[in-house]
Simulated scan of single mutants.
Amino acid sequence: MTRYFKYVAMNEGNEDWMYEELQNGRARFGWSGPGSNLRKIKAKDIENRSREEKVIWRYTQFLIQRLELGDRLVVQLERPLRKFLIVEVTGDYKSTDPKQKDFNHYVECRLITDDFINVESKAVSQSLRHHLSKRGQYYLIYDQDAQAELEKISQQAILKDKTFYENNQNDRSTEFEINRMNEDTLQRTYESISQKWPSAYFEKFVADLINSTYGMEVFNQGDTKQGWDLTMRILDPMDHKSLLHDDVPVQCKNYQGDVIGTRPIDDLERCTANSDSPIVYLFILGNLTEQFNKEFNERLEIQKNKRYVEWKIVGQNQIAQMYLNSINFQR
């Protein structure tokens, strides 16, 4: 199946130029001021790269290391996401460095969709919109249903399907707008939590959140230097009294933007080694990248080969929903 990547290329004030570049076969990407040519950076030994070159390589190496001929990019040029284009990679990475102040990076491409696809239209499902709304400058779209829908949109655009273009002009129902509002509310909520409860205090927030959630209660709180920040009890959801799990390790991480590094996974391994619990929880704010999820799954499988254990992630959307539910309960 064709691979689809979300590709966020926002050049504020220059959206028309970015679109013209796509029409001319160039999918531009940022983090690319003067001195940013990835081929020149790649040719240098790591220890000989400047700090700026290391940052550029870190955030944009996928253009030269990951993308292949035939891959398709779901291109977002503005925030918030209201419309997108689909292009197909037709050539290699290139650079116009040092011509532009930024956006010298580009990959050769051809437009699949001549016109923008309206995410609020009947041409786009609520599920696909969800998968395209994740944070991150680029990521591979894994969900098979989302891939299939993007493939269908691509084929309809290529065939100039009349019904598809009509659907793209017609907005969805009130239900769609309500769902969009709910998603926006969750995003504003977890962003506010992240800012108001920085890392040093996030553990206290999670403890209060657990205690305000039916079927969960904090057992012990405080960093034990064994990998967890607190432990909790999980009660039977039918009577909220019978104990299902006792002394379950919980670690709390607050990131803004992409989750960089493997410290949360390292701590999950420490929890597993220092506790007999069959479940370990990670409450985490931040965008879980493709690289993080891959590392998480690989290392969980290693742990399961040693003994049965489940690692449960409570991500930022779920944390926001739990918080909103707790407010309603208190009322």
Rank of each mutant, 00 (worst) to 15 (best):
V119C: 15
R299G: 04
H131I: 07
Y190R: 00
Y4C: 03
E301S: 11
G257P: 10
A148S: 04
H245L: 14
F296L: 08
Y19D: 11
G215H: 05
S154R: 00
F29E: 03
A320L: 06
Q155T: 03
T113M: 15
D258T: 10
E108C: 08
W197E: 11
G227A: 00
N328E: 12
V309L: 10
V248A: 12
S95P: 06
A123C: 13
T189V: 06
Q76A: 09
R307P: 11
W311N: 02
S194M: 05
R110E: 04
R307A: 14
Q316N: 03
L285V: 10
L111E: 05
L128E: 06
P98W: 10
D229L: 01
Q221S: 10
G30H: 05
Y281M: 14
R129I: 01
N168R: 06
T272M: 12
M232S: 07
K196P: 06
V280N: 12
A273E: 07
M18C: 11
S194R: 02
V250M: 07
S36V: 00
Y165G: 01
N220I: 09
N274I: 05
Y214Q: 14
K54N: 12
R331P: 03
K225C: 05
F116S: 13
K83F: 15
I327G: 12
N14V: 13
G70D: 03
N48V: 13
D258K: 05
N317L: 06
E120H: 15
R28N: 07
D143K: 03
F329D: 10
N168D: 06
N170T: 09
S50I: 12
N11C: 08
N328P: 05
R263K: 13
V259A: 13
T213I: 05
Y4E: 02
Y4V: 02
A207V: 03
E298K: 11
G91V: 00
V107K: 00
V89H: 01
P98R: 09
I153M: 02
T185Q: 14
L159W: 14
L235Q: 08
G261W: 10
Y281D: 10
V248E: 07
F296Y: 06
N287P: 09
K83D: 09
E149Y: 02
V87T: 04
V314T: 04
N254H: 11
K160H: 12
N118S: 11
F164N: 01
Y323K: 13
R3F: 06
L288S: 02
E47G: 14
D45K: 14
E120I: 14
R51L: 13
K304P: 09
V119F: 13
E88L: 09
A273P: 07
E52Y: 07
D114A: 15
Y201R: 14
E183T: 09
T262L: 15
D114L: 08
K6H: 09
I117K: 11
D102N: 15
L140R: 00
S212L: 07
Q318I: 10
L85H: 11
S277Q: 13
D45M: 12
Q291N: 15
Y165E: 06
D97F: 12
N305F: 15
N11K: 07
Y142P: 04
S125H: 11
R66V: 06
Y308V: 04
Q187M: 15
K225G: 03
D229W: 03
Y4K: 03
